[in-house]
Amino acid sequence: MVKLKINQKEYSVDASPDMPLLWAIRDVVGLTGTKFGCGMAQCGACTVHLDGEAVRSCVTLVSRAVGKEIVTIEGLSADPDNYLQKAWIELDVPQCGYCQSGQIMSAAVLLRENPNPTDEDIDSAMSGNICRCGTYPRIRKAIHLAAKMQREGGKDK
């Protein structure tokens, strides 16, 4: 048993220390918003935050996550001021939707560190997240929109 703190909640998880965090989150804890896409840190569908940093949970061992704050898409969604999700809705970003949890988790770290990203900043920060539906132009626009909302600090209403 290892203890994991996911989205502010403590879990006792029956997982071997070499199990990637992704499978502990999905198969053992049962939070399925974090997705499996490649298993080798290529696609970013499994992106979660570990002490605020975006990590690919498919190659992050459970042992590395012990004692750290883990935030998944479910945790991020609990924040009512999440401009990213508002922007994603506004611009109708998702298509199949499978990669979008990971896209949003990566974008959240970008916006925290760079509140006013350029297209190049976005391309660079999002380069680890693949979308086979090719929603990239809308993701880019949505990040700009979320950045604008964040800078203006207002609620959307």
Binding site: D27, G30, L31, T32, G33, T34, K35, F36, T72, I73, E74, S77, Q85, W88, I89, D92, V93, P94, G97, Y98, Q100, S101, I104
Partner: peptide
Amino acid sequence: VKRLDTPAKINGTAKFGMDMQ
């Protein structure tokens, strides 16, 4: 009309086959 499936697809609640448990 805006996509009806967007809210579920951005907060982790949309269920794909992979999510069946």
